[in-house]
Nucleic acid binder design. Structure first.
Length: 984
DNA sequence: ACCGCCGGGTGCC
DNA sequence: ACCGCCGGGTGCC
């Protein structure tokens, strides 16, 4: 049932990205604001088997003493007070009611005695309660042992559970004091029965506020102690690390080379004890040789990881990579550089080389693993360092089609970074022309063990990684990087395992994994696995999570800026990925950490904290190292400049507003607001455009199609509605996954979702799937995909036929620009808008007033973008002082620090999108204070947008541990926003 | 003795 | 299991 991206759908995706821009910060987007709404909240899907214990609302019904029998048949052992797991065994040939008893390690200890099992079976099978056990004493018994059971469930199931037990002659005892949270098994060994105490309600339940501040502390106190050692990167790291990056590197290396026991384990007389579960075993539990790097974005997680890869290979030695040195031998021998390079790239990595000329010969004879790696057309004069089987003839290949980060194969630039649409080898630029040779460095210890680091990231940051490799791997070193992406990715595991770095996406990972037995990524033993944006796997039931958890490799890292996004729950997948015993099993995580924390049990947070502390490094932009801020950025000021429309502009605006408001209030009175969401966005879009320039909304068709019988809209209208939603800059998220839309599709009822998300809804709700937003009928065959290509900008060119006129906002801008030039001729600025047409309109007066400007928007090819950026960043006299920038162009990697002024021409729905844009110049390397001017038209939708932005900011700030809103709350919020926007 | 008692065989679900 | 339970052997004191 896994959904498989095709080439076409990938292009669809790119199309989307061109319209919508980057999605990288979706965790800062309104999805944050809506907190952690999950599918299960409004659909009964989620875990199809329904095993999803609603862990947060579970209460303790009571306890019961029972016995474990058949001990002598099994090898699993327990200690007194050790937790045990009770597991139904419906296929037991002797008793269909059988309940197994397993120790923390999963080894079977025995069975629940059959009479009791008969009572438990129904309860467990129907998920009426979760039954947990602790062996209070008698752990060394030969035949049977007691087990103290706790029954947990939702309030409404309590009666049914008690009843079921009663029918079998059992009665729950009230909760034992100290056992409420199922940990710390406090039973005193001995024959006397448990001492009953009055039922204790969930210990001190922390308020949301308290929880939030506790969580904050959780990650704030992490910076001290051993995490301030610094370490230099290996020679192959081409960038000098900042102090905090050196610290991170030192910390990561110490984690990877650590011999420590994992948290909560102690060595006690030849045994290793887990102090949470009281489990003990002879075998030393493995600590994760990794952890969570949870630095705020902008602190250089990517660079740090690159440094880690290059610096810490085996035995604390750097990755043995070939150093490229100038070598006359090549020229003299007439060896074609392409060949030499191709072999370098493709040779069998087990071939051990010694430095020196003789190596070249060895090298020549090195077996080629995939000889077609070389481009066939080798007339190129410049060295080419990579290629792929089907590079073909084209000059440029669009590698990845996000607006911001597409990469192209550069055939003739001075560097040889060749990226393919799919599988690609990536090489460092060669400094020298014509020839290059290879000096093999200390390959001796590379044999045998795993070599490759796997990096998994969301598609949207794939190219950022590539950029960063380009930037930070020293030019003289050859690092084999394979981008495992696209339908023609090379599925030979041995090709992957020979690489230094394999880069792929969560989607590829999940797709491969879904095809049984055919996941090369899962056949390789990785030296190291890095999950970028690791909170991507926070849903334990998602295919990509399962796929990630099943990767093999001892060094395991999670990179994330938002380790606890909404609750402790989100941490489990990460911890499980790190393979920290015993938390890989959700039951132990839940019993020992999650429940104690959410129920506010004493010590619960302490545990979580020490767990996190031991495996996490987190610094924020405001963190300090030795009293000094980690990043010293110049000040950033945001000014709001109000603009008043001219009489004429105001008239047009009011008439459109009047018409739109009438329509929208009709939707309200009909109760069809959500059904007309796209139409409403259209109205708002036109108003926003009118605030900028009257020409902008000229050919946005009035989309109130004659008679809006929602469920039957024809395809073309749906497509245009979807485009409207996507291009309106409203930052719509998919109501299912709450992330920005991936591969958007529109339903008949005109709601837009990610294709994979809505497919999953339909699959799990079949045969009568309903639209998550309006509950209309949902069918796969009615979904309409966003058609590819045909850039929205086609309108742009034609528009310019019109005679150019100015607008109030343009006037305000030009006034500010000229003033700026007068005061500081060298100052550079960004002019940012969501509407690329608007940027085009602005070009006119810029030319007239003699500004040298450049432009960066999503429609530009990578080559042009690079040019535009370099040109703008240049400090040469005569270099452009103005850059026209579309709001969402460029990823985190985009560095526009040459600018110290930003003019934001129109507000975005989502304040985070604005902030990210500002961060492109207000970031490491900025020397000046940054002043941002937001132009806001008075008495317009823009002012209302500001208000909503502020509300979102407030909510985002407080949304840390608050309860997730329900679907209806989400809807209501949207409706309220609409009302506020159009003054209803 | 259609019982009691004895003692050996036996033992999860 | 130094138990319980089962079922065969046995049978006054």
């Amino acid at each position: 049932m896994s959904w498989r991206p095709s080439k076409d759908s990938a292009r669809g995706c790119s199309q989307y990205n061109i319209c919508r821009g980057e999605r990288r910060y979706s965790h800062f987007s309104s999805s944050d604001f809506y907190s952690s709404l999950r599918l299960e909240d409004f659909l009964s899907v989620g875990d199809t088997s329904g095993t999803e214990e609603d862990t947060d609302s579970a209460i303790l019904y009571g306890t019961l003493r029972g016995s474990v029998v058949g001990l002598r048949y099994y090898t699993g052992v327990v200690n007194n007070n050790e937790m045990v797991a009770l597991q139904r065994e419906p296929n037991n040939p002797y008793d269909k009611n059988a309940v197994k008893v397993n120790n923390v390690n999963g080894a079977q200890v025995g069975h629940i005695k059959k009479e009791l099992a008969a009572a438990l079976a129904g309860i467990m099978d129907n998920k009426l309660a979760i039954v947990e056990g602790v062996v209070p004493y008698g752990a060394k018994n030969a035949f049977t042992m007691p087990v103290q059971m706790s029954f947990w469930g939702r309030e409404e199931n309590k009666e049914a559970v008690l009843d079921q037990l009663k029918r079998h002659g059992f009665k729950l005892a009230p909760p034992l004091k100290g056992s409420e949270c199922g940990f710390g098994s406090k039973w005193i060994s001995g024959r006397s029965g448990p001492s009953y105490s009055a039922p204790v309600h969930a210990a001190v339940q922390l308020t949301t506020e308290q929880l939030k501040s506790e969580f904050d502390k959780l990650f704030e106190d992490l910076k001290e102690d051993d995490k301030t050692c610094e370490m230099e990167g290996a020679e192959a790291v081409g960038t000098l690390l900042l102090p905090h990056q050196k610290q991170a590197l030192a910390w990561m290396i110490s984690r990877e080379n650590s011999n420590d026991l994992p948290p909560f384990w102690e060595e006690r007389s030849n045994f290793y004890y887990n102090i949470l579960t009281n489990f003990a075993e002879k075998q030393r539990p493995k600590n994760v040789l990794g952890g969570i790097l949870a630095d705020d974005m902008g602190l250089g997680k990517t660079l740090t990881v690159i440094a880690l890869i290059l610096t810490n290979f085996q035995d604390g030695k750097p990755l043995p990579v070939e150093k490229i040195t100038s070598d006359k031998f090549f020229e003299e021998s007439g060896t074609n550089s392409m060949n030499s390079v191709g072999r370098r790239l493709c040779k069998d990595s087990s071939n051990v080389m010694e430095p020196g000329v003789s190596d070249v010969k060895k090298f020549e004879n090195a077996p080629l693993k995939y000889s077609s790696c070389l481009p066939k057309r080798d007339k190129a004069k410049k060295p080419r360092y990579s290629g792929s089987s089907d590079l073909g003839e084209s000059e440029e290949w669009l590698f990845q089609q996000t607006e911001t980060t597409s990469c192209v194969i550069q055939e003739d630039a001075g560097f040889a970074s060749v990226l393919l649409p799919s599988s690609a080898c990536l090489k460092r630029p060669a400094k020298r022309k014509g020839t290059a040779s290879v000096q093999s460095v200390e390959k001796k210890y590379a044999d045998g063990g795993p070599r490759a680091t796997l990096i998994v990231c969301p598609l949207s940051v794939l190219s950022n990684w590539i950029d960063q490799f380009e930037q930070h791997i020293h030019q003289d070193f050859h690092v084999n990087i394979y981008v495992y992406y696209g339908s023609d990715r090379n599925k030979d595991p041995s090709v992957l395992s020979e690489q230094d770095i394999v880069l792929t996406t969560y989607n590829i990972l999940a797709t491969d994994y879904g095809i049984r037995g055919d996941s090369p990524l899962h056949k390789v033993k990785w030296l190291r696995i890095v999950l970028d944006e690791g909170h991507t796997i926070r849903n334990p039931n998602a295919q990509q999570t399962k796929a990630a958890l099943n990767l093999e490799g001892h060094r395991r890292w999670v990179l994330t800026g938002t380790p606890i996004q909404n609750s402790v729950k989100d941490l489990w997948s990460l911890i499980s990925f790190l393979k920290l015993k015993p938390f890989t099993d959700r039951e132990w995580w839940h019993r020992t950490i999650q429940r104690p924390v959410t129920m506010g049990a004493p010590g619960g947070l302490g545990r979580l904290q020490s767990l996190i502390r031991s495996i996490t490094l987190r610094r924020t932009k405001t963190s300090k190292v030795k009293g000094k801020p980690i990043l010293e950025l110049p000040e950033r000021k945001v000014l709001i400049q109000h603009v008043t429309l001219t009489e004429e502009e105001r008239q047009i605006y009011q008439s459109v507003k009047k018409e739109g408001r009438a329509a929208i209030s009709r939707f309200f009175s009909e109760g069809t607001v959500l059904a007309h969401y796209a139409d409403i966005l259209g109205v708002l879009l036109r108003l926003r455009q009118l605030c900028c320039h009257p020409h902008l909304c000229m050919n946005t068709s009035s989309s109130f199609s004659a008679d809006n019988k929602t469920p039957e809209e024809p395809r073309e209208i749906l497509v245009s509605k979807m485009k409207l939603v996507l291009s309106s800059g409203s930052d719509e998220e998919c109501a299912v996954c709450l992330e920005s839309l991936t591969l958007p599709v529109i339903t008949r009822c005109a709601h837009v979702f990610c294709k994979p998300c809505i497919f999953e809804v339909i699959r799990s709700e079949q045969p009568n799937a309903k639209c998550p937003l309006c509950r209309s009928e949902l069918r796969v065959e009615h979904l309409v995909e966003c058609p590819l290509e045909e850039e929205a900008d086609s309108t742009k060119g034609k528009k310019s036929d019109q005679e150019w006129i100015s607008s109030s906002k343009i006037n305000a801008l030009m006034h500010a620009l000229i003033e700026l030039r007068r005061d500081n001729p060298a100052a550079k600025c960004l002019i940012v808008s969501q509407f690329t047409n608007f940027l085009s309109l602005i070009e006119n007066p810029l030319k007239e007033s003699g500004f040298a400007f450049t432009r960066l928007d999503g429609s530009m090819a990578q080559k042009k973008r690079v040019e535009a950026i370099q040109c703008f960043q240049s400090s040469q006299a005569g270099s452009p002082t103005v850059m026209l920038l579309s709001l969402k162009a460029g990823g985190v990697g985009l560095n526009l620090t040459a600018a110290s002024r930003v003019f934001l021409m129109d507000p975005a729905w989502n304040p985070a999108a604005e902030d990210q844009c500002f961060d492109r110049c207000h970031r490491l390397g900025q020397k000046h204070n940054v002043v941002i001017t937001k132009f806001i038209v008075k008495d317009s939708v823009e002012e209302n947008m500001l208000k909503i932005q502020n509300k979102k900011r407030e909510l985002a700030a407080g949304a840390f541990a608050t309860k997730k809103p329900s679907a209806s709350e989400v809807k209501q919020t949207k409706i309220n926003e609409i009302k506020a926007l159009i003054d209803l």
